[in-house]
């Protein structure tokens, strides 16, 4: 107790010194402004109004009067109330379900609060981990803060990117009822893993001249020297010399020699289909296109002469065209493209 009292006393003294220093600095600064503008001397008392009627931009006093003590009290109260928000007790319920809406037991939920210490002087982070029960429910309790971020993990499941894994009191009531009871538990989803295996994962790319001619990019296997296939890109367009947000005509065609592509949109699709591939895909963006864009990012399964790959293509329409890829390739030739991470 004694220690706390001495500490508080010391803190008060330090704050007082700082306030005095700060105050004198502001006054000094004001005097400097006055001196440089009016060529007067520094004789003015600190509380004396500095008057210069010749220039509207120079300090000029008015006859306004304020209740500064009330201002101070309001300011202190506002700061305290704001700080106290960071000490709000957190009680949070969530429920974790799989892709078929069945509860998942044993999901590890790690959390990290945004909080402040009891004396309201220093930020702090209370972190911890809880697990879902056999109903898929988890509860975070006994910590304080204005909110928290958390992450879900389970060795047999993937988190959904769309799930917003955080909580903040400031988002309510816009977000609905507070999730502080089991009935109001917020639902999260995870997707079951199938058969993750070791895959070759690579990133590559090239700059493609906008000349309409074919330009090839090799896809490579476990050994970099092993070519497993090719993507051939033909690009055209009239981008301006400098970026200006104005639409322009551009297009690109991507061909897989001796193979083909098929787009997928479900991020949990890991098995390449056997059929349905087309030898090439084409993007065409005349400048009049509704929803015109100068970037494209798409996902494909790719059939190659030696097997299958799961491919992301990113295109930036500029001069030359920026063509960037990331892909997973199964060296076994299997259609399973679920990468163990």
């Amino acid at each position: 107790m004694k220690k706390q009292t001495i500490l508080m006393l010391l803190i008060s003294i330090v704050i007082l010194i700082w306030l005095l220093w700060k105050h004198s600095n502001v006054i000094a600064s004001r005097e400097q402004i006055s001196i440089s503008g009016t060529n007067t001397t520094v004789a003015a008392a600190k509380s004396e109004p500095l008057v210069d009627n010749n220039t509207t931009n120079l300090p000029t006093a008015t006859n306004k009067i304020r209740d500064w003590k009330a201002d101070l009290q309001r300011q202190q109260e506002r700061m305290k109330q704001t700080a106290l928000q960071w000490r709000t007790p957190i009680l949070y319920y969530g429920i974790v379900l799989d892709e078929s809406n069945r509860p998942i037991e044993g999901v590890e939920v790690s959390f990290n609060t945004s909080s402040i210490n009891e004396a309201l002087t220093k930020e702090q982070y209370d972190s911890g981990t809880v697990k879902t029960d056999n109903r898929g429910i988890f509860k975070i309790d006994g910590v304080r803060g204005i909110g928290m971020v958390f992450q879900l993990s389970h060795p047999d499941y993937y988190p959904y990117p769309q799930d917003i894994t955080d909580f903040d009191y400031r988002d309510y009531p816009q977000k609905g009822a507070l999730p502080n009871t089991e009935e109001n538990a917020l639902a999260f989803h995870m997707h079951s893993k199938r058969h993750p295996v070791s895959l070759v994962h690579r990133a590559d790319g090239m700059n493609v001249p906008l000349d309409g001619n074919p330009h090839a990019l090799d896809l490579r296997g476990a050994d970099y020297n092993q070519k497993i296939g090719q993507l051939v890109v033909e690009a055209t367009g009239t981008p301006p010399p400098r970026y200006n947000q104005q639409p322009f005509d551009w297009g690109a065609k991507i061909t897989v020699p001796d193979g083909g592509l098929i787009e997928y949109t479900n991020q949990f699709d890991f098995v390449a289909p056997q059929s349905g591939y087309q030898s090439s895909v084409e993007f065409s963006f005349p400048k009049e296109t509704v929803g015109w864009t100068d970037t494209v990012s798409k996902n494909y399964f790719v059939k190659l002469p030696s097997g299958y790959a799961r491919l992301n293509i990113y295109i930036g329409a500029k001069r030359p065209l920026f063509f960037s890829i990331e892909y997973d390739y199964n060296p076994d030739g299997s259609q399973n493209l679920e990468r163990a991470k």
Binding site: L50, P59, T60, A61
Partner: peptide, 16 residues
């Protein structure tokens, strides 16, 4: 921009 000392206005400036 305004400054006060003990409730009395000491500086009033147009910010340009």
């Amino acid at each position: 921009y305004d400054e006060y000392f003990e409730g009395i206005n000491t500086t009033h400036r147009l910010v340009t």
